[in-house]
Design a protein around this nucleic acid. Structure first.
Lengths: 232, 232
DNA sequence: CCTTCGGGTTAAGGCCGGGATAAGGCGACC
DNA sequence: GGTCGCCTTATCCCGGCCTTAACCCGAAGG
């Protein structure tokens, strides 16, 4: 959803984060050190930079100043330990937000969305409403309407519906839902997804036998389709 | 579907895998050791590298770092034994995924598809829809349409139809179908294929005596052809 | 002309994935 | 501290799907 630049020296963390952020629909470039990161920031013009503190070649505040010299791209810093002084210093140097390790990709994504919305730049700033046939979903207001009538959804139900609606027509595996919606990259029981789907179906006024939006694809997952559209 | 580089020292395994991966529509180059592999990675610029651990001349993590020095090509490592430490170490060194021997070509292909889709590079990232005459197949939504009308297919039926449609005009042996669609490289009864073909024919509105799409070639296998096209 | 073999079709049975409901735990809010 | 809503987990059930088997037909070959 947004062009990101990830500056992180630990290769393990870097590749894992890139992977997860791409799953969450971002375009991600990365750099292992400050100098490469600066060059990438100049070349790629990202919407936002995620900057790990404790880089080998430059300290965080210096790096921030150099970044700011290049552009006014918003920056989220990631700190290893919960060092209040450093956080204060870094926020004073122009960082827009911070996250403390360890954190999940979903948590970071939430910060990214918030920062982009606040600064009002980048594609993710919009977080646009989704419409699938008679179903309208407004992420900003966390409200959903079906045929003009408001749906009363629990938090998880809303997230699930939003996630599926944003990928309308595409089959999504339950495990994928557990990682992206539930933020459980490893554990978690598929059954939980089934239950929430059942609740959603009830509120959407449909049954599993006569689905309107939520079609289960046996052995694979579920997909949300426009009942009127031909494209399934 | 993608340009692969297979680095594997055991010649028997290497040739078998190359053959299977080519059956699954990949272009495969191979190398028997780390140094040849590095050169091939530089020369061929593959979309993805499949790297066997336990090469004679270099250990896995070293090899990974050198590969990463050459390019940011995604890597899937194949490990002989289920050594958790080694897997963790290797994933930390930048591998994108791993498979444990013994594995089937289909299992490896599934990993390849997943990795390419995740990193968003390579031709296989798309997993494009297939059209053969009036028959349209959408792998993302796992839906198939004939003359604009949706087909209700079971999971195996869909996989089978998709596999044949992606190879339209080409005769495929039943044994090949058992390995690539059923993932049964050794056992399995050809009859199962026959039964599924019969079901498919029924749903496609054709009979074996008057075939429209599915033509059996006695003693060899089946092929799916465009009824309108001259190419048979 | 008869045998053999590959393929087509239908039926039966077992397995497994998914639907539904209920109960329990947990945190939030009051 | 109490109450309420939400999420998770467990259990039961049902139905579809895949496999296997049996029988039939037609073609190829002796």
């Amino acid at each position: 959803m947004a062009q990101l630049l990830l500056i992180e020296d630990d290769e393990r963390v870097r590749t894992a984060l890139m992977r997860s952020l791409r799953d969450l629909r971002h375009q991600v470039a990365s750099a292992p050190d400050a100098m490469t990161g600066l060059r990438a920031a100049i070349d790629h013009r990202p919407d936002l930079v995620v900057l790990d503190l404790g880089l080998p070649d430059l300290d965080g505040s210096q790096m921030l100043r150099m970044l700011r010299g290049v552009s006014d791209v918003p920056v989220i810093v990631a700190t290893a330990r919960d060092d209040e002084d450093e956080i204060v210093r870094v926020l004073g140097s122009g960082a827009d937000d911070y996250v403390v390790k360890p954190f999940t990709a979903k948590q970071l994504d939430a910060r990214i969305q918030a920062v982009l919305r606040r600064v009002g730049t980048g594609p993710a700033a919009a977080d646009p409403p989704v419409a699938v046939g008679p179903l309208r979903i407004d992420p900003r207001g966390r409200s959903a309407h079906l045929d003009g009538r408001a749906l009363e959804l629990s938090p998880k139900e809303f997230d699930l519906l939003h996630y599926l609606a944003a990928r309308a027509g595409e089959v999504v595996a339950k495990r994928q839902l557990l990682t992206d919606v539930w933020d459980l990259p490893f554990g978690g029981a598929d059954k939980t997804v089934d239950v929430h789907l059942a609740w959603l179906r009830r509120k959407l006024g449909e049954t599993a036998q006569a689905p309107r939006f939520l079609h289960t694809v046996r052995g694979v997952g579920v997909k949300l389709v426009d009942p009127a559209g031909d494209a399934a």
